[in-house]
Design a protein around this nucleic acid. Structure first.
Lengths: 213, 213
DNA sequence: GGCGGTTTTCAACAAGCGTTGAAACACAGT
DNA sequence: ACTGTGTTTCAACGCTTGTTGAAAACCGCC
């Protein structure tokens, strides 16, 4: 369950702490302490602190992209030649990350919170998001453009912005919705979040990007 | 235009820097330097660093809440007794913050980015969001409940979560959508963001919270 | 069982941090 | 001109930070 090599334990601890407190809110000594290693070991394996941060952020990115892209290809094949519906595309974008059991791999939960931290920050977002995620996002927007042939690019991108915002806040797992709803919703429950987000977002895309009646 | 008292200049600089780099990413010396004052002055006026952060966050909260609540009351009165539509309620939630000219008061732009930072963080969100914003949010959810009488509370809150996420990412002004859309959308253009967000979100609420056909 | 290379710790560095007490300044009221 | 009060600066404190070079421990291999 827990990583065995000290190098991986450093990555895991850094992932959890960076996600909770941000890059500057965490010290190498905290990371090393939580990983049960000496502070100099982080330097030996990763060099500077910023390089450790990059290593954490890049570690799971490829896997995440593959899993999403595979889900997209699957609905594209199953729906050929008409092409998948908006709902199917959104679902392919969200579901691969479901972590179905609520106690699933905490590493991934921390990683998603870290994505939220980066994506919501001008400073970090500019440095780290585009390189790793732009290609995949454009794949999904292309698919949406096909499903919504009358949509302008501008409308499509603004709709994607709304989707990205809702997803980012879900990734952040802030428990704010838990407080607001007095416990009726739990931000740790990704499945419930996606169950509501998919029809919500799909309806939004249709309303903005399909010809009015 | 620029604040005249040194106390206010400290608040303005802190607001801008905290919004860009987060609480731990900014030093009191940077804040003092940007404000053109000695570092000890921040301590004289606000005490500890965390108290300065709180002062920045609370400074504009009441005004923001009043402006939103007033907008809600206005549509409630103009639409009585039937009650306002979902679109009208969402509009009242968003528009007060439009900052219509794109170069409008940079202080408010920084403040909105700071809200995004706090709302997207578990650590800061738990400490700062509920106390200042829960009452207002519940006012809006009550209004939405009336406009969507068949909705369950759970559905309403999950929909609000989606709205809040889209709005939070807009507040963050990360310029990510600028990059993705190759300049066709600009995240500094709040008016365009809201023009697309209002129908998008309203359609989402209706789809999730109104009886299916 | 000693050797070579990798991994890990130890001990320490200079730099920068938040914070503070006392001194200097500004300036109103008398 | 003097005093008193609220501002602002100065200079320094103790502490933590990221980083580093050298020493120690580990481990497969001859």
């Amino acid at each position: 369950m827990t990583a065995t090599s000290k190098r991986d334990r450093i990555l895991d601890s850094a992932e959890a702490l960076f996600a909770e407190r941000g890059y500057d809110g965490v010290t190498l000594r905290q990371i090393a302490s939580q990983a049960g290693v000496d502070v100099a070991l982080a330097n030996y394996h990763f060099g500077k602190k910023i390089a450790l941060f990059n290593a954490v952020f890049e570690r799971r990115a490829a896997l995440l992209n593959e899993s999403r892209l595979e889900a997209l290809r699957r609905v594209q094949e199953s729906a050929a030649p008409a092409g998948p519906t908006v709902e199917q595309i959104i679902e392919a974008f969200l579901r691969p990350l479901e972590l179905t059991q609520e106690n699933a791999d905490p590493g991934w939960r921390h990683y998603l919170a870290l994505i939220a931290y980066v994506n919501n920050s001008t400073y970090w977002g500019k440095r780290m998001m585009s390189k790793l995620f732009d290609d995949l996002v454009h794949e999904f927007i292309d698919a949406l453009r096909q499903a919504l042939p009358q949509a302008s690019d501008r409308d499509l991108y603004w709709c994607y912005h709304n989707l990205s915002g809702a997803l980012t806040l879900t990734f952040a797992q802030t428990e704010r919705i838990d407080t607001l709803s007095n416990g009726q919703c739990r931000s740790s429950d990704f499945q419930a979040a996606y169950d509501h987000m998919i029809p919500f977002v799909a309806a939004g895309f249709r309303r903005v990007c399909e010809p009015g009646e």
